Simulated assay, not measured.
Amino acid sequence: MARAGLTADRVTKAAADLADEVGFDNVTVSALARSFGVKDASLYSHVRSLHDLRSRVALLAAGEMIDRIALAVAGRAGREALAAFAHAYREFALEHPGRYAATQMQLDPAVATASVAYRRTVETTYAMLHAYGLAEPDLTDAVRLLRSTFHGFAGLEAAGGFAHPRDVRASWERIIDALDGTLRNWPSAAARPQD
């Protein structure tokens, strides 16, 4: 057997699939090797370490996630773009919990900077927010608000944290409305008195 036709890309994809099954933190070189029916050493010709493997999964997942988001947002602006972005984000997080967890991994700054997926994420996010007319530092603050809201909601939902009988989707839509209102009425940092 030619090591099950292993390549770095095939190993990374298998690790991402395994992450969705068992959780990103439970992905190990040994578990992945077992899934291919090979010894751990066979994988080390394709990945340098567990950290390298997890970084590769993070980059793969970031690319898959931004592909979905960019497709959803294309041709939309304002609340419609915000809603499309939010829905695509939440759906990816719920459908691919291991991959989504990988996107939260703190990558080496040089790796993140060189990543096309990470650059596309920033570009797509800023383009979606363009209709709101925000400038720095408000733009960065708005991105942080959206990311923490989307991440928090998806994490709580995935963990079964919404036990109230109100429909979760209805709450999600109201949150998008609230975010849209906040973004349209964002208090400019330039207009606030400095301490």
Results as ranks from 00 to 15, higher is better:
Pro97Cys: 10
Gly78Lys: 11
Leu50Pro: 09
Ala88Trp: 00
His87Glu: 09
His96Met: 06
Arg79Ser: 13
Ala86Leu: 07
Leu60Ser: 06
Asp52His: 10
Leu53Met: 03
Pro97Val: 02
Gly63Phe: 02
Ala101Arg: 01
Ala102Gly: 01
Ala58Glu: 07
Ala101Gln: 08
Leu94Asp: 00
Glu91Tyr: 06
Ala58Leu: 02
Ala110Gly: 02
Ala70Gly: 10
Asp108Trp: 01
Ala72Cys: 03
Met105Asn: 03
Tyr100Val: 04
Ala110Tyr: 00
Ile66Val: 14
Ala93Glu: 06
Ala41Asn: 13
His51Glu: 13
Ala81Asn: 07
Tyr89Leu: 03
Ala58Tyr: 03
Ala62Trp: 05
Leu43Lys: 09
Ser49Gln: 08
Tyr89Asp: 10
Leu60Cys: 10
Leu71Ile: 03
Ala88Ser: 04
Thr103Arg: 02
Ala86Tyr: 12
Phe36Trp: 04
Tyr89Glu: 09
Pro109Val: 02
Lys39Ser: 11
Arg56Asn: 09
Gly78Tyr: 08
Ala62Pro: 05
Leu53Asp: 00
Thr103Trp: 11
Ala101Gly: 04
Leu50Asn: 12
Ser42Glu: 13
His96Ala: 10
Ile69Phe: 05
Leu82Val: 13
His87Ile: 15
Leu107Ser: 11
Arg90Phe: 04
Ala77Tyr: 13
Thr103Gln: 07
Val38Tyr: 04
His51Asp: 12
Leu94Cys: 05
Asp40Thr: 06
Ala83Trp: 09
Gly75Leu: 08
Arg34Gln: 04
Arg48Leu: 13
Ser49Asp: 13
Met105Glu: 11
Gly78Pro: 08
Phe92Glu: 00
Asp108Thr: 03
Leu71Arg: 14
Val47Ser: 01
Glu64Asn: 08
Val38Met: 02
Arg54Glu: 01
Ala61Cys: 05
Arg76Met: 15
His87Trp: 12
Gly75Asn: 10
Arg56Ala: 12
Ser42Leu: 03
Phe92Ser: 02
Ser35Leu: 04
Gly37Pro: 02
Pro97Met: 07
Glu64Leu: 06
Ser55Val: 06
His46Leu: 09
Thr103His: 08
Glu80Gln: 11
Ala84Phe: 06
Arg56Glu: 08
His87Phe: 12
Ala70Asp: 14
Arg48Ala: 15
Gly98Ile: 00
Ala72Trp: 07
Asp52Ala: 12
Thr103Asp: 09
Lys39Trp: 05
Glu80Arg: 09
Val38Gln: 07
Tyr44Leu: 13
His51Met: 07
Arg56Cys: 03
Leu94Pro: 05
Ala74Arg: 14
Arg68Asp: 05
Glu95Gly: 14
Gln106Lys: 15
Ala93Arg: 05
Ser42Gln: 14
Arg56Pro: 01
Val73Lys: 12
Arg34Asp: 07
Gln104Pro: 05
His46Gln: 12
Leu82His: 01
Leu59Ala: 11
His46Pro: 08
Ala88Leu: 02
Arg34Phe: 06
Gly37Met: 04
Ala110Phe: 05
Tyr100His: 06
Arg48Gln: 11
Ala110His: 01
Gly75Met: 08
Thr103Val: 04
Ala88Gln: 04
Met105His: 10
Val47Pro: 01
His96Asn: 12
Glu64Pro: 06
Glu91Trp: 07
Leu107Asn: 13
Ser49Glu: 07
Met105Cys: 04
His87Met: 06
Ser55Met: 00
Gly37Ala: 00
Glu91Asp: 15
Glu80Asn: 05
Leu53Ile: 09
Thr103Tyr: 10
Thr103Ala: 06
Leu43Gly: 03
Val57Arg: 12
Lys39Ala: 13
